[in-house]
Amino acid sequence: MKDVFVRLATDFLSALIFLAVYLVTDSVVLATSVAIATAIAQVIHARLKGRSLPFMTYASLGLVVVLGAATLLTHDPRFIFAKPAIAHFAVAVFMLRRGWMLRYVPPIVAETIPEYVTVAGYAWSALMLALGIGTIAVAATGDLKLWALYITVVAGGTKIAAFAIQLIAFRLIVASRIRAARA
């Protein structure tokens, strides 16, 4: 579980850095430049540590650079605001693959209730799509405070709540199946 939150923080680090710098300096140019530098530094750091990086890391870097460049050219932070939405859409597409989630759950869950895990995987895809659409809608307003609230409280909180609900549901269903098998 800790790995999931570390990955999420890593994936959205440049957006969080952008937000922090923008709130402190009120400079779109500085915040965007620091966000781009952060994304590049993340990739360089991982490569220097010898870590192989998945496609999504490079895709995220590309988004930060392209959307950051658009932000710098137009002085409009909405381009950077849209980056989490694009990431949500990409993840939603990946999550449409049947059974993707089976490798992320404990073996007892994968063996006992694989059909529920598959349904949960599709539910996660729908959630990511909905959060991406919400992010685009909020980004279109150009309101930094609303965007920050949405990304941290709504998007982050929704994922944490969905994870908690899924964890409890899987535990209850697995326990029920094990009791039924013993009876």
Results as ranks from 00 to 15, higher is better:
R182G: 09
A85I: 00
V6C: 01
F18N: 03
L144D: 09
V66F: 10
V65W: 04
A41S: 12
R47K: 15
R47W: 08
F89E: 00
R78D: 00
S14K: 02
I160H: 03
A87Q: 14
R103Q: 14
I160P: 01
Y22H: 15
T10F: 10
R7L: 13
P54K: 09
V117D: 00
A126P: 03
S27P: 08
V117Y: 05
R7V: 12
L53W: 01
A181I: 04
M1P: 09
A31L: 05
R51C: 01
S33R: 12
V43S: 08
L63A: 07
S33H: 10
P84F: 03
A20H: 07
G157F: 07
A155G: 02
S52W: 06
G156K: 01
A183G: 15
V119S: 12
R7E: 10
S60C: 06
L144A: 15
S27F: 08
V4M: 15
Q42G: 07
A85M: 00
A41N: 07
A41Q: 05
V117A: 03
G99F: 06
A59N: 02
A162L: 09
V4D: 09
I136P: 00
I133Q: 04
A175Y: 07
A169W: 13
I165L: 15
S27A: 10
I160N: 03
A155T: 06
L129H: 07
V64S: 03
L131F: 04
T118Q: 15
V29T: 15
R177I: 07
A9F: 14
I160Y: 09
T112G: 07
T25D: 06
W147H: 11
I36Q: 02
T112M: 08
R171A: 11
Y58Q: 00
L72I: 06
V34L: 08
L167F: 14
P107V: 09
V65R: 03
A82K: 04
L63T: 05
R177W: 06
V6P: 00
Y58A: 02
G157I: 02
L129V: 11
V174Q: 06
W147V: 05
T57E: 09
A92V: 01
A148M: 07
V138D: 02
D3H: 11
